[in-house]
Amino acid sequence: MELLRVEHLTRRYGQGAAQVTALDDVSFSVEKGEFVAIMGPSGSGKSTLLHLLGGVDRPTAGRVLVQGTDLYAMDETALAIFRRRQIGLVYQFYNLIPVLNVRENLTLPLLLDGRRVDRSLLDRLTDTLGLADRLNHLPDQLSGGQQQRVSIGRALIASPALMLADEPTGNLDSRNSAEIMALLRRFHEEKGQTLLVITHDERIARQADRLITIEDGRITRDEAVRP
């Protein structure tokens, strides 16, 4: 079942001679429960693609449909609500809110939505993330690996249809990187979470079901990694 459809997605920055095409007429689709890795050299347009898929940037042309909903046909408010319910974003630099403790950071999308936090779900999630004894800590009291685990938890707490990760291990050592990838794989395998991960690391890319390669804003390869 198709979860994500990208049609002729184009993103240009600047104007006239200074205009840069970051993404050039990209089209592809992702099935529900698929784990897709996106690779490419620096400046190839990977992050731009991820931002457009996450609904945090606006395309110059083209459409992004998540579960049949055109993200950019919605107004800002509807898009924000859609984001917090259907899309989970994980960044390289964690981007936790420093004034919120671990529990609040984890449950942020639910709090924003005015939804009750399911205690058992939170307990299970924090056990899985290894953060059960860190719930009242502030982000700057955590290690990099712990902070990234919080941001993964935040992305997953609302059970989104699509989880997007922009170089989630780019800021971590090899041990923490392995732990984070194991976590992502676990959520993918156990919960059937649809996952798109941008990475420079071929070892990580090889763990995905499918690998899309981007160069100069265009998809140059789209191949199955594991059958």
């Binding site: 996450g54 800002e76 924000a80 984001r83 319910r85 974003l89 809110i97 924003l112």
Partner: peptide
């Protein structure tokens, strides 16, 4: 600004 951007990216509406 980055924190606010993050909040917006996790679904804070413009009104909120």
């Amino acid at each position: 600004a980055r924190e606010y951007a993050m909040l917006r990216s996790v679904g804070v509406t413009p009104k909120d």
